[in-house]
Amino acid sequence: MAFPGYDFAPHFTEIDGLRMHYVDEGQGETVVMLHGNPNWSYYYRNLVHRLKDRYRCLVPDHIGCGLSDKPGDDRYPFSLERRVSDLKAWLNHCGATENLTLVVHDWGGMIGMAFATEFPERIKRLVLLNTGGFHLPKTKGVPWQLKLARSPIGGLLVRGFNAFSRGAVRSCVTRNPMPKAVADAYCAPYNSWANRIAVHRFVQDIPLKPGDRGYELVTQVENRLERLKGIPMMIGWGDKDFVFDEHFLKEWLARFPEAELHRYPDCGHYILEDASSELIPMIDDFLSRHP
């Protein structure tokens, strides 16, 4: 199946019997791009095209997402801990072990920060795009959309009607509505009840209170974020994100006041779609200024 702007050769590695798909384009220093939910490596297509003439761009599809295998609960735990383990195994497979630039968005931030805070010596630069690396800020409530997706009828909405994916391609862009072909490409991997399992499990796996699966790991990552101080950091932020909003941004800036910040008041969660023409050149420039 062809997807607009996504003309990359497919690559696969096997992790515990499951195939993980990834993009591997270009040569040079490694830039690792981690997507969130409901998303896949397609989100980074334009950034890869911009950087691949000077950098090696590595972009995985998390298990259950994109072109990777979509196992049932009997074969995969769909936990944050396992996502981080997958990331380590995949990077080792790719031979990407040092001088890494991480570009993270949404759930990719929590997964990436878990890795970065464990191995800060491997990280050269950080680019944060509407994401988190800590618990829900105390000033932030749980958005109704997430509450609904986590409710007893969430499975029917998310997996039966694809409401989370279809809703995202409409509500997560507030400046530049997606062309139908692009919106369809975002949703294409999630074309059945079975294939939407990861979309639902990601929402269910958000740890909100002590005792929730993953809560202690998030606490550990939050406490280790100071290990990343001194690493060049850029933040690209869409202010109209209904989840990763000003509460999350304030938390990042309180921890990393020297981060280079680019805010877009009229843009939403899918910031690389909404502000593509501005933000992608700025990311390129940021990498160049921190060689």
Rank of each mutant, 00 (worst) to 15 (best):
D205E: 15
S68F: 02
E81T: 14
N162W: 04
C57N: 06
F115V: 01
A194T: 03
N99V: 00
E226G: 15
H93K: 12
P137K: 08
L129F: 00
M282N: 13
F164N: 04
I15R: 11
A183R: 11
Y42M: 12
T117E: 07
P60S: 01
R75K: 13
L148C: 11
G211K: 09
V103I: 11
H62S: 15
N37I: 09
R75N: 11
H200T: 02
G230A: 07
H49C: 06
L208C: 07
P257Y: 04
R19F: 15
S165E: 04
P71Q: 08
I111M: 10
G236S: 12
E121C: 01
R227D: 01
I283D: 00
T131V: 10
D73T: 14
N162E: 07
L34T: 14
Y264F: 15
K250R: 15
L228Q: 08
M20T: 09
G238P: 09
D106M: 05
E222R: 00
Y190K: 06
R45P: 01
P265F: 03
A185N: 03
D284P: 05
I63Y: 15
E260M: 05
I197K: 11
P207D: 14
P137Q: 08
Q204K: 14
K180F: 03
H247T: 08
I15H: 13
E29A: 11
Q27G: 07
P291M: 00
K140Q: 11
R224H: 10
S288K: 10
Y44I: 05
K124M: 03
D24R: 01
L126H: 01
G64Y: 14
V104C: 08
V221D: 13
Q145L: 07
N46R: 15
R175C: 10
G66Q: 05
F244K: 05
R75G: 10
A89G: 11
R175A: 15
M110P: 01
K180M: 13
V218E: 11
I206D: 12
F244S: 05
D69S: 07
A183H: 09
A194N: 06
P189K: 01
R170A: 08
H247L: 03
H200D: 12
D73S: 12
E258Y: 06
L249E: 03
M234V: 00
C57L: 07
L225Q: 07
H200K: 13
G268L: 10
R213Y: 06
N176E: 15
S85K: 14
R45C: 03
V59D: 00
E216S: 15
W90Y: 01
E81L: 12
R150E: 13
H105Q: 09
D241L: 10
H247M: 04
H62C: 12
H35W: 05
R263G: 03
Y6K: 00
C172G: 06
E273L: 10
V199S: 08
D284A: 14
L87F: 08
K250G: 13
H11R: 07
F244G: 06
T139I: 06
